[in-house]
Simulated assay, not measured.
Amino acid sequence: MIQLVEYSNPHHRQAVIDLWNGTFGYETAHNTPSLAIDRKLAVDDGLFFVALAEGQVIGTLMAGYDGHRGWLYALAVDPQQRRLGIGRALVQHGEQALQARGCLKINLQILSSNAPVQDFYQALGYQAEPRISMGKLITANIPEHLQG
């Protein structure tokens, strides 16, 4: 039986770090899992979820809400647990949490080269939009020991 629960730092931290490192293969300091977890916990918005099977972390989803739009981030499912509906359940759980906060629209970003993930989200009702994603890295907020 799969449980979807709010992330608990002392119980889930290392398992989430391991899952994200294995799933996302981070190459930039600002995406370091421990930093991302710490920054999310500092917001304390209750929008960080884990999927558990027999008490073990097998999936994650972070969501964010700015009062207008919601965002989904860091959807990850253990490779051995994929295609069992866990990712879908996490997304739906995040959507419900955002809807309960009054969210009007949910956005997410995926790599344009990642066709399987695009297909996954399209099956859940998400559509590609004619937008350009832009970003600016604030290096002053990246701890010195993580800067290259």
Rank of each mutant, 00 (worst) to 15 (best):
L111H: 13
G59M: 04
P116E: 09
A140C: 00
H30R: 13
A123E: 13
P10C: 00
N114K: 09
E27V: 13
L52D: 02
V57M: 02
A15R: 09
E6G: 06
G94H: 02
L111A: 12
A115S: 13
S113Q: 15
A76T: 03
M134Q: 04
L146G: 04
N31Y: 15
Q56I: 04
H12M: 05
Q80R: 15
R83V: 00
L98T: 02
D38V: 04
A63C: 12
P10L: 01
L41A: 01
H145C: 05
V91N: 03
M1C: 00
D38P: 10
Q96S: 11
G55P: 08
G67F: 03
A123Y: 11
G55C: 05
H30N: 11
L124F: 08
G102A: 00
Q81K: 14
Y73M: 02
Q81G: 08
R69M: 03
Q147K: 14
L104T: 08
N114H: 13
Q96R: 14
L47I: 03
G22K: 14
N21I: 02
I110S: 11
A123V: 05
M62C: 12
Y121N: 03
N21G: 07
S8H: 15
I2R: 06
K105L: 10
S113R: 15
N141Q: 14
H145L: 03
I58Y: 11
Q56F: 05
L4C: 06
H68T: 03
V77K: 06
A89H: 10
L98K: 07
V57C: 01
Y126V: 02
P116D: 10
R69F: 09
H145Q: 13
H93T: 07
I110V: 10
S112M: 08
A140K: 09
P116K: 14
V91L: 01
E144W: 11
Q118W: 09
K136R: 15
A51S: 08
N9R: 14
D38I: 04
K105H: 12
L98N: 05
V5T: 13
M134P: 02
E144M: 12
M134S: 00
A89G: 05
S8C: 14
Q109S: 07
G55L: 06
D38F: 07
G46A: 03
E95R: 14
L75D: 08
L35I: 09
M134V: 00
L35D: 09
E95I: 07
D18L: 08
L52C: 06
S113D: 14
L90G: 04
Q14L: 10
E95D: 08
F120P: 05
L4T: 07
Y26W: 14
Q92L: 11
V91Q: 03
I58W: 11
S133W: 15
V50F: 01
D18G: 07
E95W: 09
G70H: 13
L35G: 07
V77W: 06
V43Q: 14
G85Y: 15
T139C: 01
G87N: 06
F24S: 04
L108F: 13
